[in-house]
Amino acid sequence: MKLKYILLSSFLFVSLLVSSQTNFALNYSVAVPLGDTKDFIENTSGRGVTIDFSYHIQDNISLGGSFGWQTFYEDKGYITETFGTETISGNQYNYLNSLPIYFTTTYYFSPENFLTPFASLGLGTVYNRAELDIGIFTFEEEAWHFSVRPEIGLQYDVDYGFGIRASTRYNQVFEAGDLGSLSYVSFTAGIYWEY
């Protein structure tokens, strides 16, 4: 019975995708660390990319997915840290690789115009790998976090089925495992295709 529902849902979902207008976007992303992310790495990351897919279920509403990769890095310089009776000194380098994966729903305020503001909400997960290098040694932690990502932006239809877009995203990343709330705000600029 359960299998029947799964098959039926899958069939409906695939039908929806095939019959819908599909939007594919490629974005460059600059991210500003917040909270625990900022405690670990203060530098703004200029190394990010996201790929978004969305399927219009109505002219002004789409469902989709978003995948990305953002790399944060900071050379902490020569540091000395003490833990109880232990003290360690050396050059420290911190890295954070963040891979967000979201299901998204997007609302387009004026889809009939060339220039369309939109608002989107993503729900999903972020895989984080935080790495602290000191001397020849690496201390690594990784976790899958639950995450929510509201987004607002603009997209402009340059040519039929092709346009440019820009947005601001707030990646709220909740604590997981030994990693804290590694949140950040990202500013994206990209291009999209519709077919």
Binding site: G46, R47, V49, W69, E86, I88, S89, G90, Y93, D133
Partner: peptide
């Protein structure tokens, strides 16, 4: 962009030096 901009590793031998005491 991603390959070229991947963060640099330490470049000098002394960058790997570590001092530990207890």
């Amino acid at each position: 962009l991603l390959v070229a901009c991947y963060p640099n590793e330490p470049e000098n031998v002394e960058d790997f030096d570590l001092v530990y005491t207890n």
